[in-house]
Design a protein around this nucleic acid. Structure first.
Length: 430
RNA sequence: GGUGAGGUGGGUGAGUGGCUGAAACCAACGGUUUGCUAAACCGUCGUACCUUGAAAAGGGUACCGAGGGUUCGAAUCCCUCCUUCACCGCCA
């Protein structure tokens, strides 16, 4: 949620920023509507507070008068109280209404893009920030896409997933199951070494948490919901991990907070990206190691660069060619101020696969979550939250299979061998 | 799931209807003292919103797990929910 104060004091900057997202005018108009509601809210608040102050005074008077035995004066004070109460009741209702209305409007505004975000309407307009094609695999003419390799190497089975659960659920077996475990451990170890505290989090979260990271109310339909217990299955580890610090005021010296967690991720509407892609791209449940940071506002962009370094390092260790995109305004997520996407090049499919997304949310999440810190001067301020996938397993599996296929089997990159327990993944009929 | 006891400020913990936003102690911060350390002493020490003010600072309102209710007045009484702990039952 955009900070109300920013909206009040930097209205033009906000509007200029939001225009980069290509929003319809109706959505830009929300800014004015929020500001108007805010004015109204203030005036109601002021008048209500005056009335309540009078009520408090009268109550004290009544107590005093009763002690002094002046019951007739007390009685007239009681009558005044009754009259004021009539009006405070309606004012209180109005206040709640206007606050809810304002909140309802504010919640519809996406974050203001960082100044470096390019203007644009779709993925076409994303800026290529970096390309690293060094170990570009040279595949023979027999190169196969991962869904075919999966059969040859017993990696995953779509039909079994469908049988057990339904469309969009995967079952990994043998080589695939082991590869999943290897990747999770590899990613978590790498994150730990980079100073991220490892978290093993609940997979079901309550409404407050879903609201805190912005899944509610914007993306309610994307989450699985357990009605009986009023809980949501997490769409990403970001939700439980970031919410650890909901309603917390940190000391400045406690910053930065760096967290990492592996969780399965559940999505009812399986990724809009790659809807036209076969295999591991459209699933309701996938696995991901996430990194999350809470940073001093002055240092959050520095932190974002460090996160980019981290993900870059993972891809290099996995020996995968990649590129980094700076997302344009039109392609960026609702809550983000700046997002970099990592894509791995799949030589077999001859296409780029998105494997990670790293974002700075600035105060957008912390404002909603009331995640703050107290600086050395004693002022309380919202801090910046960032997160990134490091990384999403399914797409990495696809890329590993396709890029490292050889006539003998799938070559396991050096860094992964201790985890996988072999140098080569051998085909079933070898 | 059953029974019992709780949920108060960073922590411990007082407070059973009226001047209590909340005692006391600890921690923390600022200062005095000190050759240094320790100790002692003084002071500050919740959050949000409204408002006066250039600011420093001041005034007001709300909040003692959450939400409702009783009352002129509630941390304190009543109801519902959540939650923690202990014991029992069940169980990976």
């Amino acid at each position: 949620m955009i900070e109300l104060n920013t909206l009040r004091n930097q209205t033009e900057r906000v509007l200029t920023g939001l225009r980069k997202r290509n929003l319809p005018q109706a959505q830009l108009d929300l800014v004015d509507q929020v500001l108007n509601s805010d004015q109204l809210r203030k005036s109601i608040q002021a008048s209500l507070d005056h009335q309540l102050a009078r009520l408090n005074q009268l109550s004290r008077d009544i107590g005093q008068l009763m002690k002094e035995g002046k019951s007739d004066q007390a009685q007239s004070a009681r009558e005044e109280v009754a009259a004021i109460k009539q009006s405070t009741r309606t004012e209180e209702i109005r206040l709640v209404e206007i606050q809810e209305k304002m909140e309802g409007l504010l919640v519809q505004l996406p974050n203001v893009p960082h100044e470096s975000v390019p203007v644009g309407t779709s993925a076409e307009d994303n800026e290529i920030y970096e390309e690293w094609l060094d170990p570009m695999p040279t595949l023979g003419s027999g190169a196969k896409p991962h869904w075919e390799l999966a059969k040859d190497y017993r990696v995953f089975d779509m039909e079994l997933g469908v049988k057990i659960s339904g469309s969009g659920f995967m079952l990994y077996r043998q080589n695939g199951a082991r590869l999943q475990r290897a990747l999770i451990n590899f990613f978590l170890d790498q994150a730990s070494q980079a100073g991220y505290e490892e978290i093993w989090a609940p997979l079901l979260v309550n409404k407050d948490s879903a609201r805190g990271t912005g899944q509610l109310p914007d993306k309610e339909g994307q989450m699985y919901y357990v009605e009986k217990d009023d809980l949501y299955l997490i769409p990403t580890a970001e939700v439980p991990v970031t919410n650890m610090y909901r309603d917390v005021i940190l000391k400045e010296e406690e910053l930065p907070i760096r967290l990492t967690g592996y969780t399965p991720c559940f999505r009812r509407e399986a990724g809009s990206y790659g809807a036209h892609v076969k295999g591991l791209n459209r699933v309701h449940q996938f696995d991901k190691v996430e990194i999350v940071r809470m940073e001093h506002p002055d240092r959050s962009y520095e932190a974002l660069m460090q996160m980019l370094d981290h993900v870059r390092g993972l891809l290099k260790k996995l020996e995968l060619p990649y590129r980094i995109l700076r997302l344009c305004g039109g392609d960026m997520g609702f809550a983000s101020a700046l997002t970099f996407d990592f894509e791995v090049y799949s030589a077999a499919q001859q296409r780029w696969l998105e494997v990670s997304s790293v974002s700075n949310f600035e105060t957008f999440q912390s404002n909603r979550m009331k995640l703050r810190f107290k600086n050395k001067e004693g002022q309380i301020k919202l801090l910046h939250t960032l997160n990134g996938s490091a990384m999403a397993l399914a797409r990495i599996v696809a890329a590993l299979l396709e890029n490292h296929q050889t006539s003998d089997g799938i070559r396991i990159p050096e860094a992964l061998r201790v985890y996988f327990g072999a140098d080569l993944m051998k085909p079933l009929n070898a």
